[in-house]
């Protein structure tokens, strides 16, 4: 390509100009911003970022703050259950829709529409449905079961599961769509062969189809995982972190530290930990996807 002529930069100039926004975003915001935040997480920044280094102090403080520990625990519970249920429900819905059924479009439209709604809307609707004085709990009590108790949003022990219900309602449609695309990508002959061999349907799914869909599952997993770490709006709308601090999450800790408590150092340390947790998922994935073979 290059023959070392001095006007090298001007070759293909239009394309380079067109790529300037990408280059700026990738290098300044994504790389630069990340490095900047990690760098300042080692400083004692309060109201304004100051390059006064305090080593790992912010991290020590972070991990000895009860609210952060609760946040991490919630993220963990929410994350594990959200991953499992999203994948299982998403796959089951996709498998149901893949049975050559009538009204497939109608069903798909119904399962997917919550995904078009924002987390704020989702959170507020479910806050209303789970309202103990008017919602599900009261409806069941009115039916005669007067001791029925279901008030996840007012019970610190189970509040995160209340959020989970809303999160799953909003997000499983997307997973279903991805899984359905994966199922449709599987050769019809596999099904025929399995049927000829007399393998029951559930066995075909479990031992043939799902292993074949490994790439779809991995991609879906990465998408769900990177979404989970970001969970913020849903909590803000549905519980505001309450009762008490029972449903706090890291993203909210970071936001509050940066913009409400003028404690930038804590915000930077918290967001760096969030980055770290994403990298734990992302690096093995990238290695699996792009390691070895050249891609994209």
């Amino acid at each position: 390509m290059s023959n070392g002529r001095p006007n090298q930069i001007f070759r293909n100039l239009n394309a380079k100009v067109a790529a300037i926004p990408m280059i700026a975003t990738a290098s300044v915001v994504f790389v630069g911003g990340t490095v900047w935040t990690v760098y300042y997480s080692f400083t004692s920044s309060k109201l304004l970022p100051k390059a006064k280094f305090v080593g790992l102090d912010q991290y020590e403080r972070l991990w000895s703050t009860n609210r952060w520990l609760v946040s991490i625990e919630n993220l963990f519970i929410y994350g594990v259950f959200s991953l499992i249920f999203s994948l299982v429900i998403g796959f089951l819905l996709a498998a149901l829709l893949d049975q050559k059924i009538r009204f497939e479009n109608t069903f798909r439209t119904i399962f997917l529409y919550p995904f078009a709604l924002s987390f704020i809307v989702t959170g507020l609707v479910w806050q209303w449905i789970l309202n103990p004085d008017f919602g599900v709990q009261q409806v069941v009590r009115d039916l005669g079961w007067t001791s029925f108790t279901f008030d996840p949003l007012y019970n610190a022990e189970i509040v995160i599961y209340g959020v989970l219900i809303a999160g799953l309602w909003q997000g499983t449609g997307l997973i279903m769509c991805l899984m359905l695309a994966g199922l449709r990508g599987i050769d019809e002959d596999i099904w025929k062969a399995a049927r000829v061999d007399g393998i029951p349907m559930w066995k075909t799914y479990l031992f043939i189809i799902i292993p074949m869909m490994r790439p779809v599952f991995i991609t879906t997993l990465v998408i769900i995982a990177s979404g989970i770490v970001r969970v913020y709006d849903l909590i803000v709308a549905q519980t505001s972190g309450g009762p008490g601090i029972a449903s706090e999450v890291p993203a909210k800790y970071v936001y509050d530290a940066m913009f409400l408590k003028q404690n930038l150092g804590q915000g930077f340390a918290g967001s760096t930990m969030m980055l770290l947790s994403v990298l734990i998922v992302l690096i093995p994935w990238a290695y699996l996807e792009f390691g070895g073979k050249k891609h994209g």
Binding site: A15, I23, A26, T34, V38, P49, S226, P250
Partner: peptide, 27 residues
């Protein structure tokens, strides 16, 4: 109109999609 180095920035851009926003909002 591929040019040299384009893919590096593109890869960073795609990886950037997974970085939590919280890391980049203050910068």
């Amino acid at each position: 109109w591929r040019f040299r180095g384009a893919n590096i920035f593109f890869t960073i851009l795609i990886f950037g999609a997974f970085i939590p926003y919280q890391v980049m909002i203050y910068p």
